[in-house]
């Protein structure tokens, strides 16, 4: 299988990363060589193998659904590139 430029542009769109045309060229080359390497896995028959979904022999713990934190709005907003007193501010979404 090979990835063409259109496919790469589509994946970049899904990943929300803008890629200019000059970059698409080198990305196509790099990603194809990586996928060629990855596709060695096709040599293996894995029909009867269960996928490994957790490395630990324990299931995820559950916890009580209760508030353990709070009143930290200021702290959280402090790192925002743009905010007013209570909200994160983004470019206009609704006209």
């Amino acid at each position: 299988m090979s990835l063409d430029k259109e496919k790469i542009k589509h994946v970049a769109k899904l990943a929300r990363i803008s890629v200019d045309d000059a970059k698409v060229e080198s990305l196509t080359k790099d990603l194809n060589s990586i996928f060629k390497f990855i596709e060695q896995l096709n040599e293996l028959n894995t029909d009867k193998v269960e996928p490994l979904t957790s490395i630990l022999n324990q299931s995820l713990r559950s916890r009580k659904d209760e508030i353990s934190d709070g009143k930290i709005r200021e702290k959280i907003l402090k790192n925002s590139p743009k905010e007013n007193e209570e909200f994160f501010v983004v470019p206009k979404v609704v006209e």
């Binding site: 990855i38 896995l41 293996l44 894995t46 193998v49 269960e50 996928p51 490994l52 979904t53």
Partner: peptide, 13 residues
């Protein structure tokens, strides 16, 4: 890809 990799990961483990 992903499911295949999870299966091979099982074999490696």
């Amino acid at each position: 890809y992903y499911l295949k990799a999870q299966k091979v990961r099982q074999l490696i483990k």
